[in-house]
Design a protein around this nucleic acid. Structure first.
Lengths: 339, 339
DNA sequence: TTGTACGCGTTATCAC
DNA sequence: GTGATAACGCGTACAA
């Protein structure tokens, strides 16, 4: 087993000093051609690669990005990670992924672990528990230490940092409008409690659309689940208790499941019931019938987040200007709506 | 902005030496109660946390695990990541995720980046290009350097290291048997070229099951796609060209799409056509009809991989004994098969 | 042209 | 009980 070779090893072997080796490998003008060639050949032979850790310690730059997200099984987050990876890798950064699993405590622990020198900055989306508690001290501490943070999707106004979101209100509005255009009047909404920033915004869009079309809002047609977790029973009961000719859901799982319940009731999709969800994932594409959705452009969000973060990381100046990028959602029309 | 505080800062402030501070914070017996209390109070006040990078350099241990996988959007890999995260986090390790995106070059680059001190070990699943090229020098180099590697799912016998797989052959066998039991005789198989280790094994199981039941193998009923990428047209053409009463697919996407094609042809599922896929993901659960699958237990695989890796990382002795853990697949029966 | 010395933050050993 | 020193691996300002 040939363990990693260091500058020191090369120096000893070639009977020169460490700094000579270091300079030779950097092709410094100071060093004679002879020595340079000798050193470089030796280094190549033994496959010398500088130790990242030592360089990190020296430069106070790790070239690592910490990503803290609530969940990795939801399609949206995986696409965001992919976007982050893509951009970060191209810039020579690695991505450390930590899952909060919607838990406040895990979010805090993960951040503390990473904040002690492991990463140059954070990209994160808040756990539902954090949004429910409305406690952002862990974020405050990190930003006060001068570690750049980019929040995406599930954000808060309590923290001054860069942010990337889609216009969820517009998403809710577009979807609801689409349903109304198809002649639907009794549009159900399956969402979560309002503490989740995205659900709140989507619900607002839904209300706005109804209002604009002079359709009376019927609160009984709104089901608020405690989290994004699937709860088949409550959804079934909900549909048993109301009249509806369309359903808007804040994710694709709720939507696909709603389609199943509707089909089981003998309803035709989209004639009797039209359905729209959020997140343009595999589920929507391959569901039967395929599902019309509000696309959130996760990969794009990831790329932009990474770009904003790396810019902050690499800019020396300590500017305190933060921006919020708002992406526009788009409607991907499939067979769960007419046309 | 209060930047991170170091031992040196504390020492200067309290007018003691750095080593005294270090010992005091470790509650060393050598230090007087007085000093210890003073130092500890000060450290707590300024929220001192040791710098991970410095500790890594000293200990030659990063407490980071590198995970290199082909893809993150496939449900199977996300569940594996979750399993790895779970176990690794509990042990105080962070997870650095790199995507090869099925590319040999990216796999090599990612590994090289991480191998220079960033991680204590690798958990990986080979990219399809790597398996196609059959070139594992990047893995050899890493293992020769003494960096532990655990391969999961897509593995190779060319490399001596710990491995975790499910018995894909048995999975293919179980699924095919199930279809045969339901009276199916013309069982189509949608898979990929044989260089993908898992596809090959699943195909072998399929053949074995047919053989055991004295059903003649008809090669025209086997579609081999070049990769795990969806190719709607080829699948459609395939179904147009053969007679079939059942379909086995090596992933859930192929399977769900096959169901759609069958439905479009006016066939009833599972009466006219029964369908089974691999991977017990959201897609299978929420498809209409819901899909019977061979579950791969990704989360379990992730946990076991992490466990094996960390054990190797933390064991001083340089044992050259490697094991291969083989998990048993299980059939999750849903509505795409009878009963 | 080459080498010495120092610093990044921490810990461990040894001397006082 | 406390502190100086060396070491982890690297880079660089400065000295020779």
């Amino acid at each position: 087993m040939k363990s990693k070779i260091t500058l020191k090893d090369i120096a000893r072997e070639l009977e020169v000093s460490i700094s000579t080796v270091s300079k030779a490998l950097k092709n410094s003008e100071e060093i004679s051609r002879d020595t340079k060639e000798k050193v470089q050949a030796f280094a190549r032979l033994y496959n010398y690669k500088p130790n990242n850790i030592a360089i990190s310690l020296k430069n106070k730059r790790t070239k690592n990005i910490g990503v803290v997200i609530p969940d990795i099984v939801h399609h949206f987050f995986t696409t965001v990670i992919r976007g982050i990876e893509k951009y970060a890798n191209a810039k020579g950064y690695n991505v450390i992924v930590c899952l909060s699993e919607e838990s406040f405590d895990k979010e805090v622990i993960n951040m503390e672990m990473l904040a002690n020198g492991s990463i140059d900055g954070f990209i994160m989306s808040l756990s539902s528990e954090t949004q429910a508690k409305n406690d952002y001290n862990h974020l405050k501490e990190v930003t006060e230490q001068g570690i750049p943070v980019v929040l995406f999707d599930r954000i808060t106004n309590e923290i001054d940092c860069d942010k990337v979101i889609i216009d969820d209100r517009m998403g809710g509005y577009l979807a609801t409008k689409k349903l109304i255009e198809q002649g639907k009047q009794k549009i159900a909404l399956i969402t979560t409690d309002d503490y989740l920033s995205v659900s709140k915004a989507r619900g607002d869009g839904y209300r706005k659309a109804l209002l604009d079309s002079n359709i009376e809002l019927d609160e009984s047609r709104i089901l608020k689940l405690p989290t994004m977790e699937m709860d088949e029973e409550r959804i079934r009961n909900f549909f048993d208790s109301i009249e509806f000719d369309a359903v808007l859901c804040v994710n694709e799982i709720f939507a696909v499941f709603s389609m199943r319940v509707a089909l089981e009731k003998g309803l035709k999709i989209p004639k009797d019931v039209a359905v729209i969800g959020f997140t343009n994932g595999l589920l929507s594409k391959y569901a039967n019938p395929s599902l019309t959705v509000v696309a959130q452009h996760g990969e794009k969000m990831g790329e932009i987040s990474a770009q904003m973060l790396i810019e902050k990381v690499e800019s020396e100046k300590e500017e305190e200007t933060f921006q919020t990028k708002i992406l526009e959602p788009t409607l991907v029309v499939r067979d769960s709506t007419i046309n």
